[in-house]
Structure formats: structure tokens, C-alpha cells
């Protein structure tokens, strides 16, 4: 099993940390992982993306030209990455601010209203974990338990009281996928 994933959106949406937690959860399960950010002059409000690979085999290239799954959080990223999903692959996108939805018919497209859920449920700080929950429902490549372990490992201890809220966000995110 190899999942090659691009996560892309605006800087500040938690794109890089979502990728890191996913990679860390893979590591916890003994899988091979890589996390490669676009590290240009990105800033809050600019675009940000990260390539995450979770595999049973050693990872070859951390940089890819096509992906099994694209997790898309804004229109510029949708414009760029929709065509880079492998035929039969998965595209998960949040519809907030999307004017031109994806049009491909040869991939599995899931529209999740994660931004709306985040503001309704007062989970704005866990927006990225809602999206991660949706992804893990579509592709359960790591368990939610491993994700929680990864969060415990990567979050500074002073934020550990937020762990239950993050778990809630992941579980609610899973329900956004039918």
C-alpha cells in the first residue's frame, strides 16, 4: 500500500501541520513516510502545500507529478492540482470560497463542508483536523488512535487540553464523507 497525497490551501489553514500529523501517525504504525513542503516565501494568506507519502515500502521520490489523493482547501490549489490526481484517485475539497468546482469524471470527488462545520461547532482552530477526519474516512490508511498519539507527540504539552476537541473534530469530519 502506498498513498501519495497532496494537501494544499492557504497559509494559516493548517496544511503543513495536517500533513505532519498524518505522516507522524504513519510512523507510529511502522510505515515509511515522507513530508515535503513547498517552502517558498509562503505566509499567512498565501498558498501552501505539502506532499505526504505513507507507504509499506521505502519512499522513493518525495516530489511527485501525480497523486493518489488531493486534499484541496482553496480555489488556486484546486485549479493547480485537480488535473494531477491519478485516474481513479480521490479529490477531497472544502467548498468554502470555491467558485469553479472540479469537473473531472474519472476520479472520486468528495465535497466536504468542513469550514461551515468548523464555524457552526466552534471548531475553527481544528479546521484541519476536520478535513483530516474526512480523508481518513475515505482512505483509512492510519487509525484515529495513531493520529491522536501523533497529536500528543507533536503538540506542546501546554496545548494538550485541546486534544479531546481535536478528536471530536476528526470524528465529525469523518461524517462529512458519505
Amino acid at each position: 500500500m502506498t498513498q501519495e497525497i497532496i494537501i494544499a490551501g492557504f497559509g494559516g489553514q493548517g496544511v503543513l501541520s495536517m500533513g505532519k500529523i498524518l505522516a507522524y501517525a504513519g510512523l507510529m504504525e511502522g510505515k515509511e513516510v515522507s513530508w515535503m513542503p513547498a517552502y517558498g516565501p509562503e505566509q499567512r494568506g498565501g498558498t501552501a502545500n505539502v506532499t505526504v507519502i505513507v507507504s509499506d515500502e521505502p519512499v522513493s521520490s518525495p516530489v511527485l507529478s501525480e497523486y493518489d489523493t488531493a486534499i484541496i482547501l482553496n480555489q488556486p490549489s484546486l485549479d493547480k492540482f485537480e488535473r494531477m490526481v491519478k485516474p481513479g484517485g480521490t479529490l477531497i475539497y472544502d467548498d468554502f470560497g470555491i467558485i469553479e468546482p472540479p469537473t473531472r469524471t474519472d476520479i472520486n470527488i468528495h465535497c466536504v463542508q468542513a469550514m461551515r462545520l468548523a464555524s457552526e461547532q466552534k471548531l475553527a482552530k481544528c479546521f484541519n483536523m476536520i478535513v483530516l477526519g474526512s480523508f481518513l474516512k475515505a482512505h483509512p490508511i492510519v487509525s484515529i488512535e495513531s493520529v491522536m498519539k501523533a497529536l500528543r507527540k507533536t503538540l506542546p504539552e501546554r496545548h494538550h487540553h485541546l486534544l479531546p476537541m481535536n478528536e471530536d473534530a476528526i470524528r465529525q469530519g469523518a461524517q462529512l464523507i458519505k
Binding site: K20, S34, W35, M36, P37, Y39, P62
Partner: peptide
């Protein structure tokens, strides 16, 4: 190089 320096791996 910038790839190996910036990427995360096990």
C-alpha cells in the same frame, strides 16, 4: 540540498 534539508522522514 533544499529538498533533503526541508523534507521530513523517519
Amino acid at each position: 540540498d533544499g529538498v533533503i534539508g526541508q523534507m521530513m522522514e523517519k
